[in-house]
Amino acid sequence: MRLSAGAIGFALLLALPAAAQAPMASGAVPEAAPLPVSRPADPASGRKIVVERRRGFCLLCHSGPFPEERFHGDLAPSLAGTGSRWTEGQIRARLIGSTAINPETIMPPYFRKDGGTILTAEEIEDVTAFLTTLRD
């Protein structure tokens, strides 16, 4: 409730200077190029990563078209329709480091080159490939 009220207020405030927010406008959401990988992306493997509680743990925050999984979270938007809302490059950019798009996001950075990464480059490509298939 508070969130939507705040959002409306903010939207009104921003109505005029929205043009000045160019980097934030939807068309300008950054895209990330495919990561160098040792094998082709596998959407089925990506789906497994998304639902597994100790690998992607996406469903702790997101809900989505995963009827076999119980206890979807509601901290973040549903993953349903991800593939029609965002391009493949935008999905990849969100997985790699969502703070580059929204500095206040609660979405963890799933890929780092300097060690301590949550997912490998191959797994990022698998999940990206899977999420692009969620069209509805």
Binding site: L3, G6, A7, G9, F10, A11, P77, N102, E104
Partner: peptide, 17 residues
């Protein structure tokens, strides 16, 4: 719609900080 959702995410932080 997509634009609005994005603003909502940004707006949530100052509203709750």
């Amino acid at each position: 719609m997509r634009f609005f959702i994005f603003l909502a995410l940004i707006a949530a932080v100052p509203a709750l900080a």
